[in-house]
Design a protein around this nucleic acid. Structure first.
Lengths: 189, 189
DNA sequence: CACAGTGTAGACAGGTCTGTCTACTTCGCA
DNA sequence: TGCGAAGTAGACAGACCTGTCTACACTGTG
């Protein structure tokens, strides 16, 4: 997934600076591990400015997830298209992401784990994210209707691969497992 | 997964009470969401006792994961055997777990997400856990060697199902996806 | 009985966290 | 010029957190 670089020279708005900084810190370190003072310090805004744009940390978290969803889905769709737009395109596309030095799994899974119990909005946003991901996967399948129920199984396997790449820190093994599953699903279709 | 009930009447040791309480709270609420004062209050020990048995919160976390590993693996193996010991046994076994009111995904995935970045020991324990889970799955497969490489793919799909059951909160859909993958892998074998 | 081990209750210190607020500056517009 | 909006730096309050410590009680053993 391409990084969105806010160049230090870009006269971006305070809100954008906060959001980009939070995105980077929340994804890299964890939401609870990142205090708002750190976001404030690294985005170079004052506390009053921070709270003017985001009335609470929860507001920032939700903005982070919305931003993440847009960015990730755009990358996902583009990467699938770039690699041929077939189910097999999932492998090189995910390989790009897993190979990224900043890869730390799925921001939505991570957020539900950290905060899903206390913030239902995060669960809802995650469900929407996974639905959109599944629809993107469905778009890789050939037109016959019988393929359509497979999209959910593929999405499940994709999330399994994401989690394995994160936990086991061997992206190649996760991709091999996903490859085998994809081939089996296609052969059985 | 069967709950380990420490009856209020059981004269269990302080250490055991702490560990069981921590297990319940950490799994249900999250590790970071559970302060040690809460573990102390709910296990009915004094702070000195707590720190005598667990020199730091990190020690307790690791004990929690070791305990969880033993309990979960014992349940997993027993459930697979109870349901016939074939790959298809994964479905009713996981259905038991997903249907449990206290289900909140895999404690190891959750712990890596919450703390994996700052505690490498958690990552290592998680990797061992997933390895043991994969070996238990491998034990479901028929003896021919060619089946062996499939265990990793099945384990990946199992973790995908666990995560989906947690995120989407529709256990049936996750199990249906896993079922389709299992059938495809068996048919392609 | 004395001692060690194990337990109780809880005060305390210092750190981190989220959110409220003061005081001041800069910019754009009427 | 005056005003409102948006920005700056940072103090402050109260809550929560982890870990240290005091004082005392109980039990088992030599």
């Amino acid at each position: 997934m391409p990084k969105h670089h806010a160049s230090p020279k870009t006269p971006s708005s305070a809100r954008e600076r906060i959001l980009l900084t939070a995105h980077e810190l929340f994804y890299r370190e964890g939401i609870r591990a990142t205090g708002i003072d750190r976001v404030i310090a690294e985005s170079g805004v004052a506390k009053v400015t921070f709270y003017r744009h985001f009335p609470s940390k929860n507001d920032l978290i939700q903005a982070f997830l919305e931003y993440r969803h847009e960015q990730w889905m755009a990358w996902f769709r583009a990467a699938l298209a770039r690699h041929g737009g077939t189910p097999q395109a999932l492998l090189p596309a995910l390989a790009e992401w897993f190979g990224d030095a900043g890869f730390r799994g799925c921001a939505f899974i991570n957020s539900v784990v950290e905060l899903g119990g206390s913030q239902p909005a995060i669960v809802a946003m995650t469900q929407r994210h996974k639905q959109d991901m599944t629809e993107a996967i469905r778009g890789l399948l050939p037109p016959p209707e019988r393929y359509n129920p497979i999209a959910e199984a593929i999405a499940l396997a994709v999330d399994g691969a994401i989690v394995h790449a994160q936990l086991l820190q061997v992206p190649g093994a996760a991709l091999a497992g996903l490859d085998r599953i994809l081939k089996a699903l296609e052969a059985g279709a």
